[in-house]
């Protein structure tokens, strides 16, 4: 029996609070591709900010809550490479002393995908059939690129999109300077790394810089807007989703 593919959206804390439109775009896009989407309630955060700052017991508490929320999910789709990395690569290790939870964490890790990887590798939808007008460039989020080894899927999706002229971003694989709590622990260093990124974005001549991570978007959009730049920072889903259904 093959029914429609089902996916649960893990919207992430930044996605929920700051970029709800990204979540909306993902739902629209996935439905367009025939996926049945659900949204398990009471989601908060994957715990990555706690984990990266060294608060692993606390991160494990968050993970212990998150894992059963998605216990019944066929696939879990995450809009941010860093949060997907957390679930896929770090959740199991948090439960070294609890084999049962470790097994559940591993099972969740296997079912969890960053959005672009889900589209290309699970759905086989490297052409999503929508269109977007303009010159765009792509910023590699560190965790998606180096953590999950993904650089091609987002570029393929963008390159195949009707109306899009994809240009390569100089230093695309260099960090934008966000780094979670790093951005407020060392704000001056963080923003000077950002200044380099913004300069490269402007050098690319693109009207829009696309990323697959809410952290990078928060950082790059913040820098562009402060500078009064006309370049927009958008999530991949916002570019791919196409216009709202009438």
């Amino acid at each position: 029996m093959t029914g429609p593919i089902r996916a649960s959206l893990m919207v992430t804390c930044l996605g929920d609070l700051f970029f709800p439109e990204v979540g909306v775009a993902i739902v629209r896009l996935l439905r367009r591709l025939g996926v049945t989407v659900n949204f398990p309630p009471n989601q908060t955060c994957c715990g990555l900010p706690l984990f990266n700052s060294g608060y692993h017991r606390e991160a494990a508490r968050v993970a212990r809550r998150t894992i059963p929320l998605f216990g019944a999910s066929e696939h879990v789709v995450v809009p941010s490479g860093s949060c997907a990395w957390m679930v896929k690569k770090e959740y199991p290790g948090l439960f070294r002393d609890d084999p049962e939870l470790a097994r559940e964490a591993e099972a969740l890790a296997r079912r969890t995908y960053e959005l672009s990887q889900f589209l290309v590798k699970v759905l086989g939808a490297s052409r999503v059939g929508t269109s977007f007008k303009g010159k765009v460039t792509y910023h590699d989020s560190c965790h998606l690129l180096r953590g999950l080894g993904e650089s091609q899927s987002p570029r393929t999706l963008l390159g195949n999109l009707e109306g899009v002229q994809l240009v390569e971003l100089p230093g695309a694989d260099e960090c934008c300077g966000f780094g979670g709590s790093f951005s407020v622990r060392l704000p001056d260093v963080s923003t000077s790394i950002l200044a380099k990124k913004i300069a490269n974005v402007e050098k690319s001549g693109a009207e829009c810089v696309v990323a697959c991570d809410a952290g990078c978007l928060l950082q790059m959009a913040g820098g562009l807007s402060r500078k009064g730049s006309r370049v927009r920072a958008l999530h991949l889903a916002q570019v791919l989703a196409g216009p709202d259904e009438p």
Partner: peptide, 28 residues
């Protein structure tokens, strides 16, 4: 306060008027 550490060098989007969780109801 501590939030100035962010806004000193870049802008921040406001917390959305309605979070995704709040919007989900009409998306189902």
């Amino acid at each position: 306060l501590v939030f100035a550490r962010w806004t000193k060098g870049r802008d921040l989007p406001p917390v959305a008027a309605r979070t995704f969780s709040e919007r989900w109801r009409e998306l189902r």
